[in-house]
């Protein structure tokens, strides 16, 4: 009995020593964590943030989107909504678009005359509250007009902040680039 308990004590001491050795070895190794917010991780490659529109080649203010509604149909959480103007109505719509974002857009339209039969994108809204980040919209897009943003530090106080108007976001990006 005594022999057994003595043996157990010795075994316990031994595993303690082995454990301490491992700890000591690792104590000497370099730090592997990142001290957020003073430091941030650098490898954001492959990160799938919320989606954003890709500008077309000829005009950075205009998206490549052809408003085919493929992304809207495939989205499992139904968080994308877009509206488009039929090309015929374009003239009428221009006059009744008072807010600045639309003005910028129409300006863009003048600079690069749109192809005739293409419907013009009027608004593209992604409700990020419901997005499940599956990326099916990006894959289903026939023109490659959607991509993932790398906007990783997204934070806000209200739900409304995450209802993202991607068209004005695209125009803001283009403006920033010009400046």
């Amino acid at each position: 009995m005594i022999v057994k308990s003595l043996r157990e004590t010795m075994l316990g001491m031994w595993s303690l020593l082995v454990g301490m050795k491992v700890t000591a070895v690792n104590f000497k190794s370099t730090q592997i964590t990142v001290h957020y917010p003073r430091e941030v991780v650098h490898s954001l490659e492959g990160y799938r943030g919320h989606i954003e529109l890709v500008p077309s080649d000829e005009d950075p203010y205009k998206p490549k989107c052809i408003a085919c509604n493929n992304c809207v149909r495939i989205c499992p959480s139904a968080c994308i909504s877009l509206t488009a103007i039929k090309p015929k109505k374009k003239a009428a719509e221009k006059t009744e678009a008072p807010d600045s974002a639309d003005e910028v857009k129409t300006k863009g339209k003048k600079e690069a005359p749109a192809k005739k039969a293409k419907p013009e994108l009027e608004s593209f809204v992604c409700d990020y509250n419901y997005c499940c980040l599956c990326g099916l919209c990006v894959q289903s897009c026939p023109t490659g007009a959607l991509r993932y943003s790398s906007n990783v530090y997204l934070a806000g106080f209200t739900r409304q902040e995450f209802v993202l108007d991607l068209l004005s976001r695209l125009q803001n990006q283009a403006q920033k680039k010009e400046q």
Binding site: G12, V18, G19
Partner: peptide, 12 residues
């Protein structure tokens, strides 16, 4: 190997 030393062989 390290996991084994640290944990698996641990008496407790």
């Amino acid at each position: 190997k390290m996991f084994k030393d640290l944990v698996t062989d641990n008496f407790i």
